[in-house]
Amino acid sequence: MVKFEIHDLNIWFGSAHAIKQVNMEVQSNEILSVIGPSNSGKTTFLRALNRLNELNVNYKITGAVELEREDVRGIEIEELRRKVGMVFALPLPLPLSIFDNVAYGIRIHGEKGKEKIEEKVEETLKQAYLWEEVKDRLSESAFKLSGGQQQRLCIARTLAVGPEVILFDEPCSGLDPISTAKVEDAMVKLKEKFTIVLVTNNVKQAARVGDKTAFFLSGELVELNKTDRIFTAPKDKRTDGYIRGKFG
């Protein structure tokens, strides 16, 4: 099923043309990896999906991003961001306890029942493979967790509001290999229920977890295909050069 459809998308920040005429689709229940050198527009593309770019003052957009055939600009912004969750590049726990980090989003969306919240917190911490490690210290500050644990907490926090899509913005850039493997495991499990878009500057990570891979360069979508096709037989010379490490 098609989750996102992107038509003629162009984005500017001031005079900088960050995304140039992008057309593509994102399928549900699979991981789309987005790769490319820095400043190629990957993160801007990702933030167009949950309209987080709009926090920037000089932001201008043309074309359309459609979530299940509905233009995202027509969806109420709080509802859109509930449906399209995001995990950021660095682990960014809120300055709250472990429990409250996950409960924050649930409460924001109007859930008041204490038991319901507790249930949901436990469920999502399990989904993020963190429950066993934190179940006895839920009231501690989230800053006491290790980097990898913090990032999984952030995943749980995103899951807790009941998203359909999860956007990962270089989620392992600050993590060691073992923590990275745990986060990747979680992602692969999560695609059974969610649509996942993963922006990464780690080409090998894209190869490991992505069902499809999109290659961005200078704001253009150069190539989008099944991951094994991209890595074995790229159609574009630039894609080939990038994944072989010739630039970027």
Partner: peptide, 25 residues
């Protein structure tokens, strides 16, 4: 600023973000 971004990305409104994240800190 990142706290605000996180809160907004979870679907909190601007006022909720101010009230629950920015002000207490």
């Amino acid at each position: 600023y990142s706290f605000r971004e996180v809160s907004l990305s979870l679907g909190a409104s601007k006022w909720q973000t101010i009230r629950h994240i920015v002000l207490p800190n």
